[in-house]
Design a protein around this nucleic acid. Sequence first.
DNA 1: TCTAAATGAATGATGATTCATTCAAGGGGA
DNA 2: TCCCCTTGAATGAATCATCATTCATTTAGA
Lengths: 209, 209
Amino acid sequence: MARRGPRGGGPAKRDRILRAAIKIFSQKGFFNSKVSDIAQAAGVADGTIYLYFKNKDDLLISLFEEKMAEVVADVRERVAAGDGALSRLKIFIENHMGLLLREAGLIEVLQVELRQSNKFMKDYVPVKFLEYLDVISEILELGKREGTFRQDLNVTVARRAVFGALDEMALAYVLSRKRKYDPADAASEIYRLFAEGLCTTAQNREGRT
Amino acid sequence: MARRGPRGGGPAKRDRILRAAIKIFSQKGFFNSKVSDIAQAAGVADGTIYLYFKNKDDLLISLFEEKMAEVVADVRERVAAGDGALSRLKIFIENHMGLLLREAGLIEVLQVELRQSNKFMKDYVPVKFLEYLDVISEILELGKREGTFRQDLNVTVARRAVFGALDEMALAYVLSRKRKYDPADAASEIYRLFAEGLCTTAQNREGRT
DNA sequence: TCTAAATGAATGATGATTCATTCAAGGGGA
DNA sequence: TCCCCTTGAATGAATCATCATTCATTTAGA
């Protein structure tokens, strides 16, 4: 019963399909991808996909959740190695931008499809994505406890601001065919931006509300 | 020839269609919206839409460009009233979050559809969106000239970080049905975040790179 | 009456999903 | 060792609904 697949198939067939879906969705977008394209890319018959996934939507959602779970587990581990909130923040930011190179296809899918799905799939709650945001919260909370970050920092807003800044940079990278900037450089700029702010000196800051 | 429409139609029919499109797209998303839904919402026959727009894609793109043009012109005017870079930045941020209340439907469409279109409509360049980013650049450049902002600030990265943070907050607002936060509060938090950074004191900042 | 605008039914393509059929691995009997 | 069976996996052609788009016809202002 737990057969590996007659045609001596490689690793689990389900995973082949998931990989193929990432490839096709990242190239054409969810709505422009045909199930038969994915089947072909996976080297599988159209109908086979329905043995592993309920339907096309389920394929996309499984992809989100399963792959994001890996990303979250990975970043958690990396961040834990950092010493103090600033160091951890730096690691988080560098890791996020690094994903652009390590997991290009996945990121391209997340970038453009996650929003759609959040908004229009009636009952889909992006659990794993929220966990990713939680990692940021934890860093910010640590910073407050340590006294590194302002006590009046609004974590709910700040974590989204950090994520949003990263996400937008990643989007710019993904959209520009010419790859005109280096993700690592962008990462260090963004780190400074949050750590130091835009201003030159503390004086300027006091000047306004 | 420049008839107003037999049925004593209201303002320009084209505009009625554009408004209807915003409404329908914001509710269901581009791909799930039928042209006939839009026609119905506009009080117009299906075919009429094709008298004013080349096709469904063109309808979406016209919507982006024409409505964004209004938004850009408006924010430019408001920002110009600010005195100095920090004041202008504050106005920009407040205006962006304010759009959530003033132009809810439009923002919902932009939030989720602009990315898709950027990525998958082969030759669409979101000119008006880029102009919106330019408004941020201009503020940042001004800050550098004034000496308010760091001389080594990377404007290309920073403008996207600012936009990204705002966009993400707006998204969170649009997605949460419960409307759990006030856009105006979020605006002031984000302003402080960029103006002051995350840290408590200058000392902490110097500590790391 | 003439003309441009508007209509909306009909067309044609597309593509998700189904399901009757095929395939092949493992087991048991000779 | 060699052959059948049985069974679940896999297949992919056919189905069927869904729209975007067209265009012959109607409408009403000038």
